[in-house]
Design a protein around this nucleic acid. Structure first.
Lengths: 114, 114
DNA sequence: TAGTTATATATAGATAATCTACCTATGGAG
DNA sequence: CTCCATAGGTAGATTATCTATATATAACTA
């Protein structure tokens, strides 16, 4: 079974959807949280995230709403949709398939004769 | 510890170096072998591989030599260099770090408060 | 023996994801 | 009042990969 070729570059999408699968969040929160959560392995850039969120919203995987925080600052929250959850599930399956295959190749002896 | 941002898209490089870490191979052999070895999860395209091999050779990670097979067909074999092995080792470490972080996020409960 | 498929390598141009670099705006700390 | 953190955003460049195309020969098939 072949997997989506965009998986490699597309894991950011999966992570964003996964974050929102837990709770509604706003962009800046995702950037900071992802960085801390992963011990700085992920350093999601604003220039990557915001356009991605807009794209996901256009594809009906997210919806957004504004909310004013205690400090009167307006934040734009995102909530995952049913379609987004379905997409997340698919991406997770692809991720498992792909990483299992890579780990198999990295761990295995390789193939000398074809 | 942060990792190379090109890791996601760059795993093809790692796989190619890993293949050559086992034995010298020629391009077509890698394409066919990788496909069979991974049950078609990897479908490395000629248009991806050949330019990549040329780039890796320019970076002194590979050397190439031609050899005539039994059927009189000329094949261009590639051999990994010391520099290539060093790069492979680094890429593998990045791969481990990155996949561990993703799996942690995918498996974990996520973070609600930041 | 003529046509198709497999082997083998290669390049050009398109596509897509991410990055860098910039911009706006407000709240709070010094 | 100035600087930093917070918060959201866009434009253009970079890079990896893909599709499409090209060449050439071996091997199979009708």
């Amino acid at each position: 079974m072949a997997i989506d070729k965009s998986l490699l570059t597309g894991s950011t999408t999966m992570l964003v959807l996964k974050l929102l699968d837990g709770t509604d969040m706003y962009g800046y929160q995702m950037i900071e949280g992802l960085s801390k959560q992963s011990n700085n392995v992920f350093r999601l850039k604003a220039g990557t995230l915001y356009p991605l969120l807009h794209t996901l919203e256009q594809k009906d995987m997210l919806i957004s709403y504004e909310e004013t925080a205690d400090n009167a600052r307006v934040r734009k929250y995102y909530r995952i949709t049913k379609k987004g959850r379905k997409h997340l599930h698919e991406k997770k399956e692809e991720w498992k398939t792909y990483t299992a295959a890579v780990n198999d190749l990295l761990g295995g002896a390789g193939f000398a004769t074809v």
